[in-house]
């Protein structure tokens, strides 16, 4: 389950303070915020900019550079399906199509009920037990039709 919460100035301040002593604290802070709120709210961008003595544009630039950070909330679960070469060789394109059909969304989209976001990922390092996927933080190898059903069902809970 992805933690989702409304923006809370105090909590963001706390996350920033927790990492303020680090060298180059930006990514750890953004990970903390993404993890807590399920996205990086615009108001948090302003707060980070003020705390780190950067412009909002600089923080925005960092947030939008990385695939892991999102400015808008996403699904309560994130299902990542590997689309890289090793998985392709093991038949991941068919798996990916079947998952799109099962969820009724395309890659990069979220189901209408806000439950599941489907994303492509490029390599989970499971290339010898391909095809692979990751539901939230849980990794799944040797994907097949049966496992798709179980994963989708689990994500719908």
């Amino acid at each position: 389950m992805v933690s989702q919460a409304r923006y809370d100035e105090g909590e963001v301040a706390e996350i920033i303070a927790d990492h303020a002593g680090l060298e180059g604290p930006m990514l750890p802070i953004l990970h903390g915020i993404q993890e807590r709120f399920g996205h990086v709210p615009e108001a948090a961008v302003r707060q980070i900019a003020a705390a780190l003595n950067l412009t909002r544009a600089e923080v925005h630039g960092v947030v939008t550079f990385y695939h892991d950070f999102h400015k808008e909330p996403r699904g309560r679960h994130v299902l990542k399906v590997c689309r890289a070469e090793a998985c392709q060789a093991a038949g991941s394109d068919a798996i990916a199509d079947a998952i799109e059909r099962a969820l009724g969304v395309k890659f990069g989209e979220t189901t209408d009920d806000g439950q599941i976001t489907l994303e492509a990922v490029y390599c989970l390092g499971l290339c010898a037990t391909a095809p692979s996927a990751m539901l939230d933080r849980r990794i799944v190898g040797r994907m097949n039709e049966a496992k798709i059903g179980a994963l989708v069902e689990e994500a719908r809970l």
Binding site: G24, P25, M26, L27, P28, L30, H31, L52, G61, V62, F65, Y66, H67, D68, F69, V121, Y122
Partner: peptide, 25 residues
Amino acid sequence: RVGAGAYVCGEETSLLDSLEGKRGQ
């Protein structure tokens, strides 16, 4: 330090920029 899903950060100089908290360019 945990990366954030950018393949190019495997390139050493963009990795360093990323570690510094910048775009991984």
